[in-house]
Design a protein around this nucleic acid. Sequence first.
DNA 1: TTGGTGACGGTAT
DNA 2: TATACCGCCACCA
Length: 107
Amino acid sequence: MTPDQEEYVERVLTLVEGVPPGRVTTYGAVAAVVGGGPRRVGTVMSLHGGGVPWWRVVRADGSLPPSHDERAREHYLDEGTPLRRAGVDMAGAFWDPGEPDDHRQGP
DNA sequence: TTGGTGACGGTAT
DNA sequence: TATACCGCCACCA
């Protein structure tokens, strides 16, 4: 693993850890911040996502892979994440890592 | 070097 | 609303 890779992985994981409980972000949103592409982020998560709240990173439509969907749902219920039939209610739970909704950096 | 692949995204049917 | 396809970026045989 090259230093570049480790750094990229660390940036992804750090950002994921920054997602507030009860909220979620998407692979694409993460990729928009750390660079690379959504698929790259997904690959990183599959390999190193075990140590972070991986369930707070979902696909653009608010769903997760069937295998992890069940496990994630328990976390969502536990955290009070707004859910919808297909998965997470993106309209209410989406959190943009590039612009946290606490955009009160100014008056 | 080439081709195939994946915890993805967006548009077309 | 559910599927199909194509585009994307990096990794690997």
